[in-house]
């Protein structure tokens, strides 16, 4: 299979992500202010709603693999990535990992609109775990990758949304993660830039990085991944080869 994708042959790849019986329940409270709490005191049950966004997720991911995480809207994909990334805590179970992890859940999450591109590169680099020295080292290469040119010294609130994403992605790919979690961020940017991002992802694969990739594009998943996990209502309903996974995904939509 490694010839089909850009995936390198790795002997005895270790497990890098391990989720054991992970469940996540969300409680939605409808009263955020003190007044509402007091008014609704005692009847608080009615003002709470809870449901399971993830249920008994068991998962092992080996180094160097590329996983496509797919499912209908609201099936729990982003929630699973957040649990893997340690951004939210599950109600049951544990997620363990090893190696450096970078989560691209939203590009430019740390951008401050009033700061210039340059200032934001340093800030965002630091948020993603680079030292100032490393960011300074990669700075030219980041600007070059983003193709943003002289706008680097303009406040990012004046950027077009494409420029914003370009700069953010350029920073993210310089972070050197062992595990990369990507949540639907590659669909932005114009076509040449998308191609460039895809090429970068392929390069990451060739370097043996592990990628968990959420996408609604079956073509992209087929193109990049050697394993597909299908989520439906917070449960894994399929885990296996790509083409069968796509079929399972289509079937899951009706449910």
């Amino acid at each position: 299979m490694s010839s089909l994708f850009n995936l390198p042959e790795i002997k005895n790849p270790p497990v890098v992500i391990r989720a054991s019986d992970v469940s996540k329940r969300f409680v939605i409270r409808k009263d955020k202010s003190l007044k509402e709490r007091i008014v609704n005191f005692g009847r608080s049950r009615r003002h709470k709603e809870d449901f399971w966004a993830l249920r008994d997720i068991k998962l092992e991911i080996k180094a160097g693999s590329s996983i496509g995480l797919v499912g209908a809207n609201g099936s729990g994909k982003s929630t699973l990535l957040k649990v893997i990334g340690g951004i939210i805590q599950p109600n049951d179970g544990v997620v363990e990992r090893r190696g450096r992890l970078a989560a691209l859940l939203e590009l430019g999450a740390g951008f401050h609109p009033d700061l210039t591109g340059r200032e934001n590169v340093f800030l965002n680099g630091s948020i993603l775990g680079l030292t100032q020295k490393q960011t300074a080292e990669y700075f030219d290469s980041i600007v070059e990758f983003s193709e943003i040119g002289d706008f680097i010294d303009t406040q990012v609130k004046f950027y077009s949304s494409g420029m914003y994403v370009r700069l953010a992605f350029a920073i993210a790919v310089h972070v050197d993660p062992d595990i990369l979690l990507v949540d639907e961020v590659l669909s932005v940017g114009d076509e040449p830039f998308q191609d460039k991002c895809m090429a970068k992802i392929r390069e990451f694969q060739a370097e043996g990085r592990t990628i968990v990739f959420v996408s609604h594009s079956a073509a992209q998943v087929e193109d990049l991944c050697n394993r597909v996990i299908v989520l439906s209502h917070g449960q894994i309903i399929f885990d296996g080869a790509t083409d069968e996974g796509i079929v399972a995904l289509r079937e899951s939509f009706g449910k």
Binding site: P8, E9, I10, K11, N12, P13, P14, V16, I17, R18, S23, A63, G64, V83, I84, G85, G86, I87, I88, Q89, P90, N91, D92, G93, V94, V95, E96, R97, R98, G99, L101, D178, A206, E207, G208, R209
Partner: peptide, 22 residues
């Protein structure tokens, strides 16, 4: 690809750390 194998070998020596836990 040796970089991939090197990365994999390095990762297998690392201990697991908890990402998130109940």
């Amino acid at each position: 690809s040796s970089t991939a194998q090197e990365r994999s070998d390095r990762l297998s020596t690392l201990p697991f750390q908890t990402s998130s836990s109940s």
